[in-house]
Structures are given as C-alpha cells and as structure tokens.
Simulated scan of single mutants.
Amino acid sequence: MKKFFFNKKDHKENRALLIGAVANLIMAALAWFTYYLSNSGAILLDGNYSFIMFLGVIVALKIVTVKVRRTKTFPLGQFFYESLYGFIKGLMILGVLIMSLSTAIARIVMYFTGSTDSIPMLIPDPILYYALVCSIICYSVSFFYYQQNRSIGNSSILLKTEQKATFVDGTLSLGIAAGIFFLTTGGAGSKFGFIPYLADSFFVLILVSILIKEPLAIIRESVIELAGGTLQDKEKREAFERAVYLNMPKTFNIEDIFISKNGSKYIVLIYISTDEAVYPRKDIIETKDKITGILSKDHPYLSLDIIPEGKPIQEKRPNENK
C-alpha cells in the first residue's frame, strides 16, 4: 500500500481542527453545568450544539488523514468526504437552529396561554457569565479558523465549515448575553414581567432569522461540489482563468474552461482549438505542466487537463490517393 504524507497545508488544517475540538468540548461542559444552575433551555441547546461541533471536528480530523488515499474505487483520492462532511454539518447546524426556534416558540405560546407554571424561571447570573465567556471563545476560534484557512489559500472546506459554525455558536452566545442584560433590567412584577420567562426565547427568534443563511449556504455549496458543479468562488475562479489565459500559447484558442471543486481537490478542464493543421502534442504537454505548476503552488490537490476540441484538418501524405 502506498504511504501518504501530510503536506504543510494538511498540518495547519489538522492543528487548527484539533484546537477547535478542545475549545468546543470545554464550551459543551460549561454549558451543561450552566444549564444545571440556570434552568435555561437555550443554554442546554447551546451546549448540545458545541458537543455536536466537537464530534464533527473529530470526524474532520479523520477525513484529513484519508482524503489523499487512492484506491481502485477512488483512484483520484477520497476528497468527496470533505464535501459530504460539509453537507452533513450544514444539516446539523440547521437542525440545531430549528430546534432552538421550536423551543422558543413553544415557550412563548405557553406564556401567552397562561401556562407559566410549565416555564422554569431563569437564573440570570450563571447565564451571563457563561454567555460572555463562550462568545469570546467562539469568536476567537472562528477568527483562528479563518486565518488558518486564509494562510492555505482558502482551500479547506473543513475549516470554512467550522469557521461558519463557530461564528454561529458565538453569535448565539452573545445573543443570550444580551437577553440576560434585559432580564436584569426588568422584574417579574413589572410591565416587563415576561422577561424572566422569555428573554432568551425572543433573542433566539432574532438570531435564528439572522443566522439561518449560514447553514443553507454550506449545504448549497456542498451539494454543488458533490454533484460536480462549477466552482462557486468567483474570486478564485477568476484567478484560475487568469493563469490559464496568461500562459496559453497563441497557437491555441481557448474555447471553454471548466473548473470544479470537491473538498480541497480542484479539477480544471481546458478545451482548446487551433488554426494549425495539427495539434502539437509537445506544446500541449508543456502548457499543461506550466499552468499546473503555477496553480498547484496554492492548490496542491489539483487535476488539470487540456482537451483538444474537434480535429484540425490533417495534411495528406504524399503517397495518399487524391
């Protein structure tokens, strides 16, 4: 069996994911302890979300080790696991947001139908401390993911997915902290008497409406990658096309460029035509090697092919019948 080694980008990706896994496990433990002290359903959901993210990162670490392995079934590597992970993680994030939304709506309905006995009163102090600490951790980890992915040319769908997920988690925590701030300004006997019951529920409604686009974007991008669709990153696509046009010999006419992405593997197909009598094989090979060398500096898992489109007119040999 051929042995594979991590390159520098894989080491950065692996290290970033490992740090994120530890951070998520810590936040999950803090959330469960805070839920025990505060009676906040939003905190419980936040903790479960962090634990799901921890489990997801563990899976992502495994994907980093297997994605480059080539088998008879997957001769180009198993990069599709990255896109599949993004799709499943997007569904998980969407599920957590829907659960949070459902719980919030249920509490609001129970309150306004007079079933306040079924809604536990919130104890604000533990929630405030937890929310502030976790929002700082989440935003720090999200920025760390962003920086690490940027340092490897934004080529990791794993880091991109985790960065968005952690940002969502941090925003939820910050929203909870804001809700508790309002809770401390209103009492159960005042005109703001609903606040001790529904503070976190109202902020969950607001935050879900803001954050719902994040998992939907992850799911959409992952589905396109799994289906073999065109690259959705406009800026990166333009960079690829620029490298192709600048390094294509004048004897070749570029008819079309297809760029696709599956996880961290990029596939580039360049369709060319020529006005010459024949396609010079040597020029095609040299051009392919040159463009591949340029693009692979930032994208080590690159597959590039130059495909002649149609057949040029062949010159007849002298001994051929006219």
Rank of each mutant, 00 (worst) to 15 (best):
A177S: 08
Y36P: 07
P312E: 00
V68M: 11
Y245C: 10
T116Q: 12
R220N: 14
P75G: 09
L61G: 04
L295C: 11
G187C: 11
F51A: 09
N262H: 11
A42N: 02
I180M: 08
I224H: 02
E238T: 15
D233K: 09
G293I: 09
D233M: 06
V141D: 04
I270Y: 02
Q163V: 08
I157F: 04
S173G: 06
A42S: 10
R281D: 14
V59W: 02
I93P: 00
Q148C: 07
N149C: 11
V66K: 06
P300D: 04
F33K: 06
K213F: 12
V109Q: 06
A177V: 03
D46L: 11
E315G: 03
G56P: 01
L231S: 01
I285T: 15
Y139G: 06
K8V: 09
E309K: 15
F194C: 01
R70D: 05
Y139R: 03
N149G: 10
G47A: 03
I291R: 02
M53Q: 10
D46E: 13
I254S: 04
Y111P: 01
I58M: 08
F74H: 06
P318D: 12
K2L: 13
V96Q: 01
S173I: 04
F202H: 09
L269I: 13
L174W: 09
Y245S: 07
R281V: 15
F51D: 03
V96L: 05
F143P: 02
V109C: 08
K316H: 14
I195P: 02
L158N: 00
S303I: 15
K290M: 13
N7C: 10
F74P: 00
P75H: 07
L211K: 03
G228F: 13
V208T: 07
N262C: 12
G187E: 14
A28L: 10
R237H: 13
H299G: 05
T287M: 02
I157N: 02
F144R: 01
H11K: 13
Y145S: 05
D125H: 07
P215V: 06
L45C: 09
I63C: 03
S303D: 15
K62C: 07
Y301L: 05
S201M: 09
T116C: 07
T287L: 02
P196G: 10
E286Q: 12
T71F: 13
S260G: 14
D46I: 03
K261N: 04
K3L: 15
K2C: 10
R317Y: 09
Q148N: 13
